[in-house]
Design a binder for these strands. Sequence first.
DNA 1: ACCTGAACACCGTTCAAGT
DNA 2: ACCTGAACACCGTTCAAGT
Lengths: 208, 208
Amino acid sequence: MQLHKRDVIDAATAILDNFGMADLTMRRLARELAVSPGALYWHFANKQELLGAVADRILQPALEPHVPPGWRDQIADGCHRLRDALLSHTDGAELVSASFAAGQSAAMTEIVTRLAAAAADAGVAGSDAELAARTVVYYVLGFTADEQSRLQWDAAGATLPDGQSVLTAEPSRRFAFGLTVLIEGLAAHGDSELLATARDDLTQRRLG
Amino acid sequence: MQLHKRDVIDAATAILDNFGMADLTMRRLARELAVSPGALYWHFANKQELLGAVADRILQPALEPHVPPGWRDQIADGCHRLRDALLSHTDGAELVSASFAAGQSAAMTEIVTRLAAAAADAGVAGSDAELAARTVVYYVLGFTADEQSRLQWDAAGATLPDGQSVLTAEPSRRFAFGLTVLIEGLAAHGDSELLATARDDLTQRRLG
DNA sequence: ACCTGAACACCGTTCAAGT
DNA sequence: ACCTGAACACCGTTCAAGT
């Protein structure tokens, strides 16, 4: 039976979920698929490209189109869905972070584009909108990688008697806090930017 | 001649600067020091611990005490010094990011503590101050790792005719932009928090 | 206390040769 | 077109034995 890209990504995702990133090696993956390591290099140029494909698979659920109106909810919603997608797979945040940094995730590019559009709606001027989007993404990836490593660390160790408040509720509240800080910052910046544009507009009209 | 921790960190930093993170391996480091690989494990428990020590060395210049008064300048200054330290070594941002995520950098812990104190001054309530500090740190690490990888990528390739505006001035402006968004967000949050505290205070006084 | 030598159990990637 | 076999050039870590 022929080996397809899909099978490879499926098997890679399974290894990730069951054993984590450290075990997601080309050789191990080949063994699981019962092919020689070299076979993988017919379908993927290198390991980075393969990891990028796994990242895109993980991010699929976060890619449904924006439902909410209003840039604040668009950013908040996008970020929550991103976090949820990352938390759905072992070491998800770490994997996606690495793929994003290596520029190997088309899904992350799409997410940044959407967040940039929302930032533009907030009043952030042209070229800064993508930067604003990246700033938000740095937060989500950093926070979630941190959260996930702690989560996985004491998933093996001490199971706290309270299985909810500290382990799931608190992180979500904390995540929302940082998100609010960013959104309020964008609102403040956007407002002053819109003011400046309006001022220039008036000046233009007076001179024209 | 006896091998000391200092010598190991020195040699590791030299490899990093001259060849980058991919070449910073235990075996290569041992070769450079003319010892066997096993010797390193007398001085460091594992590679992560050694990388943490290199991270702390890199961060040394960012650890001079806060000079400016006012929480805004304290955050802005701290972040600029952090970025400068990271950019002073090849793959500096990547190395410090990894060490921070692994909880192996005492210097990063110190930096977070200082930023948290500034956030508290901004009016961010107790336990959220550290989270605010981490949020800022996620931004600096994310932005700088990104900046540095692009910088190093086209340091080998196309040397743009303009050697200043896009390669150094623009990144600095862009870095400041994201920082302002975060600081304004903290200001907005801090103000509303202070208002709430004041309101509670009044209520207490009315009831008491 | 500090280090060597040698081993253990792996890596990612390439590429002639096969079908 | 797709894959095997085997090699190349490495890894991090451990640990008995030496000084």
